[in-house]
Design a protein around this nucleic acid. Structure first.
Length: 483
RNA sequence: GGUGAUGUGGCCGAGUGGCUAGGCUCAGCUCUGCAAAAGCUGCUACAGCGGUUCAAGUCCGCUCGUCACCUCCA
């Protein structure tokens, strides 16, 4: 069973063969840190966290770097606006990013390189590009001459003449060709700058990734990830810089996650249709977010809205309810899985492997998970007499969900606790107090005990109006928020 | 205008030319005082028009629609 990855450059799925058969080098473009990030920005981190997990499951050692762009026009502008230095501002938002990242329960990257910590690498790479006559100095700027790079456009499928025909590039007298892009920008008066052979200035946006990758990993890496919107010009320019510098093929597999839409359009700061991840996780829950991201294939554009949130909640309730039932049958003494049910989960796991190996088909993983949940519910019900067979099924089921969840960074919480958390969240949103529901349910239980079914039904209707479902079991009446 | 995606049943969303995706909704049944949850059963779709093939949602062409990129953007 081998892994296939869709390579954006070749536009087809290719068998994954890393340069080093045991060790995968993976780099993903991270954020420019000048503000809180929105839910769309975190699609990539969730996706590539899953990618790393799957590579590790597949037996590879993975080194995963994600950068922080901590020098940039927007950072400088925002810093001036709020009266901080660019360094203070970027450090603040790096800390906020890390909080968001941790709130999603994602594993830390192996490294988070920053532009300001790789100035020497950047200067050295720019110097090499000038020496190779691939770049030229112009009034304190250093520009990359794309005419020197024959493969320019091989990732995005764009050709320089077409780009020129687009004519949406601002004319810059300093450029030999309108499409040339800045490797180094001369500092404006009073702006933060670093010394260089071409005068004080700062790096262009694209060079940082090339330089940091070269410094951390060397001339070649296996996987380079990022959002689809980075294909042009950012990644195209990275290729030009890195290959122009080393003469070697730069990235073996380009992986690009699609965008998150909101209201039918790409979620973006400039359009203003954004929800910050911080707000979303505070109001909802990280599991809901990860469900929304991973139940859709990473290369499919996905609509982020209330309907999608509701779907995620009902799906989570279904899975966690089954897990809670399994939990109720398990004790630390239960260590033996039921052979018949283990066969079911083993077969399901083969489907999970096949789906994941086919360019990380997480939607099919979810489908398989639902099938296992259904089979478990079919064989095990609440209130069954506890016996080793039931417990063995519960164990096999739990192990399957946890194993799959480990790849998705989901389903690791105690199920009962999670369901209560989910209900509390929904009660808060509806502005309903737990005690009020308890009171009505208690009143109804009393009516039922007196066989006053008319009153019982009346109270049930009242609960239904509050979006509460009551279940009457031999052990008593329990309620939950209807999902 | 250029480049690249994409169009699947009421909704969401997978899909490697022939074999049940899955979830939600809906209808029926089991269970239940009535319900809920859960289970069982049912609902057979691939934008349109051509073409290739023994066989196409799956390949090719055209048309129409949607989206992204071409400007900072995950």
């Amino acid at each position: 069973m081998s892994l296939k990855i869709y390579n954006s450059q070749s536009r087809q799925s290719e068998e994954f063969v890393p340069y080093d058969p045991k060790h995968v080098k993976m780099y993903v473009c991270g954020p420019t840190v000048y503000n809180f990030l929105h839910v769309g920005n975190f699609r990539g981190p969730v996706v590539f966290n899953m990618v790393r997990n799957w590579l590790e499951y597949s037996g590879y050692k993975v080194t995963y770097a994600l950068n922080f762009t901590d020098v940039d026009d927007k950072i400088i502008a925002k810093a001036n606006e709020v009266g901080m230095t660019p360094g203070e501002l970027s450090e603040k938002y790096i800390a906020e990013y890390k909080k968001d990242f941790a709130s999603l329960g994602l594993r830390a990257h192996d490294m988070n390189p920053k532009v300001t910590e790789h100035m020497e690498d950047i200067l050295s790479m720019v110097g090499t590009l000038i020496d190779k006559k691939v770049a030229y100095e112009a009034q304190g700027d250093v520009l990359y001459s794309i005419e020197t790079f024959k493969d320019y456009g091989k990732l995005s499928g764009r050709h320089t003449d077409e780009l020129l025909a687009g004519a949406r590039v601002e004319v810059d007298e300093k450029k030999r060709s309108p499409m040339d892009f800045a490797l180094w920008k001369a500092a404006k008066p009073g702006e933060i700058s670093w010394p260089s052979p071409w005068g004080p200035g700062r790096p262009g946006w694209h060079i940082e990734c090339s330089a940091m990758i070269k410094n951390i990993f060397g001339d070649q890496i296996d996987i380079h990830g990022g959002g689809m919107d980075l294909i042009f010009p950012h990644h195209e320019n990275e290729i030009a810089q890195s290959e122009g510098c080393t003469g070697k093929h730069f990235v073996k597999y380009w992986m690009h996650n699609n965008m998150l839409n909101f209201g039918g359009q790409k979620m973006s700061k400039s359009l203003g249709n954004i929800v910050s991840l911080r707000d979303f996780v505070t109001m909802y829950n990280a599991e809901i977010y990860k469900w929304m991201i991973q139940s859709v294939h990473y290369r499919t554009m996905s609509e982020f809205g209330d309907a999608a949130v509701d779907r995620a909640i009902s799906g989570l309730a279904r899975v966690y309810s089954a897990m809670a039932m399994a939990e109720s049958y398990l004790t630390p003494e239960v260590t033996q899985v039921d052979a018949a049910f283990a066969k079911i989960t083993e077969d399901a796991w083969k489907k999970v492997e096949a789906a994941m190996n086919d360019d990380f088909g997480t939607p099919e993983v979810f489908a398989t998970m639902f099938e296992v949940v259904r089979q478990f519910n079919n064989q095990v019900r609440r209130g069954m007499k506890v016996n080793p067979a039931i417990q063995g099924k519960a164990l096999a089921f739990t192990q399957f969900i946890k194993k799959m969840g480990a790849v998705l960074a989901m389903f690791q919480e105690p199920a009962h606790d999670f369901l209560i958390k989910l209900d509390n969240m929904l009660l808060d949103k509806a502005n309903i107090k737990r005690a009020d529901v308890d009171a009505v349910v208690a009143e109804r239980s009393a009516a039922r005990a007196n066989k006053d079914f008319a009153k019982s039904d009346e109270l049930r209707n009242k609960l239904v109006a509050m979006n509460i479902s009551v279940s009457d079991t031999p052990e008593g009446s329990f309620w939950e928020v209807t999902k």
